[in-house]
């Protein structure tokens, strides 16, 4: 039965992720519509349920245009390089103590390493289209993703120091008494901000600032290749929300010993809260300027993350308090 799980499991996971992406987009539009006092999509199907399905169908049936002066091969490979890592990172995410795929000893590092490959896909895609707006968007995106990866990794070091492991399953197991969001509050805030920047979402959506750059790195893409770039973004929301749940919200563990709900339901509840938070922030905050963005990463988030590491190291030695840090 084990080998069957390893063959069917990933296919099922891909299906679940695509389903999530379809309805996350609808949910996002509904939430933002609600924040902005308008109904949101409500024409296709009851309550607009089939809006995204119709949108995807439209994208898939569109004409596939490859610009004449583009670098043909790279133009076609770029969406693949961008999307594959987004699905690969899900391999190490433990959804419950039984539903997981690869139990790597360095799961957390694996996530960080693989997700950095996506930047390469974005760079290649923006360059190969032979369009200056796409190139500018790609440059911004690469600069932003590289800068924010540093506070992102630094902010989880506090968690690793408390859990004594890089394995995501063991990190969840280490939170059976206190979720890391409480002792690692600074780490959580830095992680959340840096992860929104890594996801290229508002208020950090400079790479695709449509008012300045037409559409950012995917200007030249149409049809299903464009759909791949959008899919990557939402796949990363799925992955990042899962990772936040695991690192800071105790994964599948029930709070206050309320085990009347199964672990998977707890995981989905916490995951949904994080996803809602991401959409809420998008509806609330305006976009930053490029220079503000870079200064924020290097002058605020990085020192804060370093301070958090230092604080964790000191508090681990203080009697009584140290019980929360292990």
């Amino acid at each position: 039965m084990d080998w069957l799980f390893y063959i069917i499991g990933p296919i099922l996971l891909l299906g679940i992720m695509l389903g999530f992406v379809t309805y996350a987009i609808l949910f996002e539009r509904k939430v933002i519509g609600w924040i902005q006092n308008r109904p949101g999509p409500n024409q296709v199907g009851p309550w607009g349920v089939f809006q995204t399905v119709a949108d995807i169908f439209k994208l898939l049936t569109k004409e596939d245009i490859v610009p004449e002066r583009a670098d043909q091969t790279l133009f076609k490979i770029a969406p693949i390089i961008t999307f594959v890592p987004a699905f690969l990172v899900l391999a190490v995410i433990p959804f419950t103590d039984r539903i997981r795929f690869a139990d790597l000893a360095v799961g957390l590092l694996y996530y960080m390493a693989i997700s950095s490959i996506t930047t390469m896909g974005i760079l290649v895609g923006s360059w190969s289209g032979n369009n200056k707006y796409a190139l500018l968007g790609g440059m911004r995106s690469a600069a932003q993703m590289i800068s924010y990866e540093i506070p992102l990794v630094m902010s989880v070091i506090g968690v690793v120091m408390s859990a004594h492991t890089l394995n995501l399953t063991k990190i969840v197991a280490a939170q059976n008494e206190v979720w890391f969001i409480f002792p690692q509050l600074i780490g959580f805030v830095v992680f959340l901000i840096a992860s929104i920047a890594e996801l290229n979402r508002t208020p950090f959506d400079l790479p695709e600032a449509e008012s300045e750059l037409v559409a950012g790195y995917h200007v030249e893409y149409t049809g299903f290749r464009f759909a791949f770039f959008m899919l990557t973004e939402y796949a990363y929301i799925f992955a990042m929300a899962s990772l936040t749940t695991i690192l800071f919200l105790g994964g599948w563990q029930a709070p206050f010993g309320w085990t009347f709900l199964p672990p998977l339901i707890w995981f989905i509840l916490k995951f949904a809260v994080i996803v809602f938070l991401l959409f809420w922030l998008r509806g609330t905050l305006p976009r930053l300027r490029t220079d503000q963005l870079m200064e924020f990463a290097w002058k605020v988030l990085l020192p804060l993350a370093l301070f958090n590491i230092f604080l964790t190291a000191v508090l681990k030695e203080v009697p009584w308090i140290q019980t929360f840090y292990r």
Binding site: Y110, S116, I117, M120
Partner: peptide, 13 residues
């Protein structure tokens, strides 16, 4: 993982 993080990721980018 470090090979991916440093070489395939950072250096290549």
């Amino acid at each position: 993982v470090i090979q991916i993080l440093i070489y395939a990721g950072a250096v290549s980018i």
